[in-house]
Simulated scan of single mutants.
Amino acid sequence: MNGNGARRIIPVITGIGHGQTELSAYDDALWKTGIGNFNVIALSSVIPPGWEPVLQSEPDLRRKWGNRLYVVQAAASSSGLRDTGLAAGIGWAIFDHGGGVFVEHHGAAADAASALQAVERDIELSIADLCERRAAVPARLGKATISATACGPCCVLAVAVFQQEDW
């Protein structure tokens, strides 16, 4: 929590990117989630006390070219040589002490609905395992998922944005 007792927000955003290659599709997904001009640094999945994941369409970030940006992310991509269902998602559990955990899953299947179903199942199973391992009952649960059918190079991205740092 910040000095006045309010929880700090972790924006959780999803996006679908397209491009001429899988890499440029990933860049497009980063761009569409509002973080395309940052150096993305992946974190493990522990939420510090005082922070709260919140679904947003785009993070409220000061745009500074090249800053470090700490995230938890799930991304699935395809070259699109054949139609492929893609899905990615992040789930979270917040415990009574204020801390929590993220889980991130991604996958591909014959169609987007099947890929999404598998990702959502994996999120639920992982959250259950992480809670059991910590002997903690979640006070709050949440998730953000996205799916698409890749008809060319495509990337689906779910990202939880912690904070940015200058160099």
Rank of each mutant, 00 (worst) to 15 (best):
G91N: 01
A6P: 01
L69W: 02
V119S: 05
S79K: 10
G36Y: 03
L141I: 15
L125N: 13
P153I: 11
S45A: 11
S114G: 15
E22F: 00
D83I: 07
E58H: 07
A25P: 02
R121H: 13
R8I: 07
D27L: 14
L141E: 09
G107E: 02
Q164D: 15
S77P: 01
A113S: 13
G3C: 01
R7T: 10
A109P: 01
W51T: 04
D166V: 11
S45E: 14
V54W: 03
E132V: 02
V71K: 04
G36F: 06
A160F: 03
L116K: 15
R8Y: 00
A76V: 07
N37V: 07
G36Q: 03
N4D: 12
N67G: 05
E104H: 15
C154V: 10
A113T: 12
A75N: 07
A88L: 02
G17E: 02
G100M: 06
G34P: 02
D83V: 11
W167L: 15
R140D: 11
G85T: 04
Q56W: 02
R63Y: 09
K64W: 08
H18I: 06
A88K: 00
R68K: 15
A6M: 11
V71Y: 06
S78G: 09
A115T: 06
L116F: 04
V72Y: 01
G107Q: 04
D28S: 15
F95W: 15
